[in-house]
Design a protein around this nucleic acid. Sequence first.
DNA 1: GACTCTAGTCAGGAGTGTTGCCTAGAAAGC
DNA 2: GCTTTCTAGGCAACACTCCTGACTAGAGTC
Lengths: 385, 385
Amino acid sequence: MTPAKPSLELLRSLTDEHVLRALIDERRLTRAEIAARTGISKPTVGESVRRLTGAGLLRDTGERTTGRGRIGTYYSLADDLGLALVVGIAPDGVVAEAVDVHGEVVAREVEEVGRPAHPDQVAGALRAVAERSLAGGPGPARLAVVSAADPVDRGTGRLVHLPDAPFLVGELSPVEVLAPLVAGPVVVDNDVNWAARAERAAAAPGGLDTFAYLYLGEGLGCAVVADGEVRRGHGGLAGEIAHVLTRGPRGRAVAFTEVFAELQLRRPGSTAIDVPALLHAVDADGRRADGVIAALADAICGVLGALVALTDPQLVVVGGTWGTHPAVLQAVSDGSGRLPRRAPVRAASVATEPSLAGARHQALDDLRAVILTQASAHPVADPVR
Amino acid sequence: MTPAKPSLELLRSLTDEHVLRALIDERRLTRAEIAARTGISKPTVGESVRRLTGAGLLRDTGERTTGRGRIGTYYSLADDLGLALVVGIAPDGVVAEAVDVHGEVVAREVEEVGRPAHPDQVAGALRAVAERSLAGGPGPARLAVVSAADPVDRGTGRLVHLPDAPFLVGELSPVEVLAPLVAGPVVVDNDVNWAARAERAAAAPGGLDTFAYLYLGEGLGCAVVADGEVRRGHGGLAGEIAHVLTRGPRGRAVAFTEVFAELQLRRPGSTAIDVPALLHAVDADGRRADGVIAALADAICGVLGALVALTDPQLVVVGGTWGTHPAVLQAVSDGSGRLPRRAPVRAASVATEPSLAGARHQALDDLRAVILTQASAHPVADPVR
DNA sequence: GACTCTAGTCAGGAGTGTTGCCTAGAAAGC
DNA sequence: GCTTTCTAGGCAACACTCCTGACTAGAGTC
């Protein structure tokens, strides 16, 4: 990438960016503390603080230092810098959160939707929770990040119905619903991808750059993380594994999703997996359970083999309502050990609202980026003195 | 990423970088032309040119402008900025090229190796061509980029032998062989990945960001390009598809490579595909050929289905000695149209030395990056005046 | 009450990049 | 052959940014 043209303005905006970044990390700092943190000299920091305060990005908190030495004034980011909207859309309900620059969740709204839900109902609930979570907030929504329990078209952000995969949320365009409420981009991705991002964020920094997240729930999905980023593919449909050929009962090559049909573990009249039935079968005693587990493990390991061969992950994380069942996990882990190329398998470590956690993380990053770039793009406020 | 600390030194190095970049794009320029190109003012460019000339990175070419107006002096990059070594290692021989900053191939050496080659022979040939191509060159080798016809360990750069995949080049560490000849990093990757990079470079800029390159030759491989980069996976083994389950003869789930064993299209005593036999079978008239083609297409399309499902490519490029055979390509293309998710299939567009082309491209990028960063890291030459 | 410590400011200076003007010197036009 | 036109390069003045070092204000500490 060609770097920016050298100019004095560039230098100044870089200084401002450093100052803002320091105040994102730490809620309140004196000018001297900012200087010490950033390595920028005190007079320069003072100048930058004056600029940013004039532009409305910083404010004097009114507090004063109380150590020995001269009293200093604390500065913090302005209150009205804006919020990020984080939204989770699942077939049984929607969640919305408003997050501020510091990563604090300042509002949270939930709304259940009876199943099966009509897309219009979901859209209505979506709008409602979004509005409520932003109402009375300290600033406007600068962007929205949406997790949805269906495949998402990367270009348009619409939920898409793939043949032979369950369509849980239904025909819905989160972008259209949320755009009126948000003064910025609306990013949509599917829940498995967000869960994978949460898993990465939870790991040691840089420690989990290339892995796969296998989701086994009502739907079958997977996220591929390569070189630190979820790779969505051209249309956003990377990881839609329902149709990958695997080893079915009696060694035949069948699509992954077909295995569940043959095992009678799909909900009648649907391509969704009947999770209660599956868990019941797995938890039963005796030969029936062993047979089901063996069949599932065979099928899963076939897909796992393709996944490992094509993406060479450092680790395969398994999540989803039934994927983390101990018996299933054990069988998959054992089976993966017999694959020609093995990758360690473990259960997801983020257990509570994994996809929302991932979306929240991204929303925070994006919100900070928006604020930092806005600051550097800001025209020079007429120098008040 | 946190941007660099603002400082005047940063500004200066940015200016130098712009000047160098201009002279990389265009071999010779006057100071006024550089100023016009970069948008930097004339005095600043003059200053930068003085600095860089003093540091030995630029030189006065001696030529003068001959248009109307005052004569100007042309400057160009110094001759001894260094070269990049580009190496291709195939089982039947090795190639080495020396490339300069402008992308010009200043030397090229080839050496055949009798098959089957002993790894020591290959290493010897490798050292020989590398030395010859650098001998008498205008500068030292700053880095090497190596393409090898075997899987490459991403961490160590060694060629690795995967079970049930042919090991064409054999136990060899290009890094160890080349490090003594090169004053910088030695990057090694497998030939299919390089071919994919060449394919991307040959396409319209930004037009081919997410695709797959399916290689069908003696070995079976594939490269996954996502968001503009080849994704090698954690160990560098992404795309080693020999063991992916697919549909074999009689609808059974078998590993991709097994299909060729069952069709008697492997070289005896080896896991390599017997390409002449395969082409002969495909080119034969009548039912036998149809049967083989259908079986191959079935197997390939099974793998293709997994590839498309997991990576969602915009396009699948097919290369390799027999993958581009019209009948095979046609059958694969037809079969891919019947997949639940389809991706267009076409033959590779870079036909001559595709992997070397990709490696060359990368070598050039890296060489330029090395020179630019060296310049910005350069200590201030004592101001000659 | 003197001393110590710290936040913030001020003045001076070094180092950028820029604008505008000038000069040298060659081609083009008359 | 002379003048005009045009361009590369240089010079000076200026604007701006950051830095160092000294200084001040004001609160704790001994």
